[in-house]
């Protein structure tokens, strides 16, 4: 993104919040939602616009799990580690995912295809253990199913093999 475009986009996001108390977190939320992470050059621009030191912005970004500092993978794989899923074998799913695509929770595959994260309860304990990829929920997942699930999203379209 060129500097001009960046400034325009930040301006759009910041304007409604200017001068309001607690605006930093609201602005960061919108940035996170828009870009799926908070890019550093955007943080610099926000610092300037809101007159907040960059250090404070990074304190907030790194404090809350919600904010990300790196561009996430194209497909976000969430493995539930809530109590029910945990007991039903979610840690094994995490191991299996690492075996398949070589990344641990919090990491993104080098090709940017998958970002894996461990999450707490997804609110469907009856389906434990649960994995979601994007918005799609996979229930009662067994380790041997992991390869197939991931294949649905892999490029080039190897998805056919899985379905």
């Amino acid at each position: 993104m060129d500097q001009e475009q960046l400034r325009k986009e930040v301006d759009e996001i910041v304007k409604p919040w200017e001068g309001k108390e607690g605006n930093l977190i609201m602005v960061l939320h919108q940035i996170q939602n828009r870009y799926s992470y908070v890019p550093r050059d955007i943080s610099f621009e926000v610092a300037k616009r809101l007159n907040v030191p960059l250090a404070r912005i990074y304190e907030v970004i790194t404090f809350y799990n919600y904010f990300k500092l790196e561009a996430p993978g194209k497909n976000i794989v969430s493995v539930c580690l809530g109590t029910a899923c945990y007991l039903k074998g979610a840690p094994k799913l995490i191991d299996e995912i690492e075996k398949q695509i070589g990344v641990k929770p919090g990491e993104t595959t080098p090709d940017g295809q998958f970002h894996v994260q461990a999450v707490r309860c997804l609110g469907c304990c009856g389906l434990a253990p649960v994995i979601t990829v994007g918005q799609k929920v996979y229930s009662a997942v067994k380790p041997e199913q992991v390869a197939g699930i991931l294949a649905e999203y892999s490029e080039p379209a190897t998805a056919a093999a899985a379905s």
Partner: peptide, 25 residues
């Protein structure tokens, strides 16, 4: 660094057990 000197080079990043002192980023 932040209040006495107003430099804001140092900050606490992350939280809980992972908290660390660092410049921003």
């Amino acid at each position: 660094c932040q209040q006495m000197q107003n430099v804001w080079a140092l900050s606490f990043l992350e939280r809980g057990f992972k908290t660390r002192i660092s410049p921003a980023g």
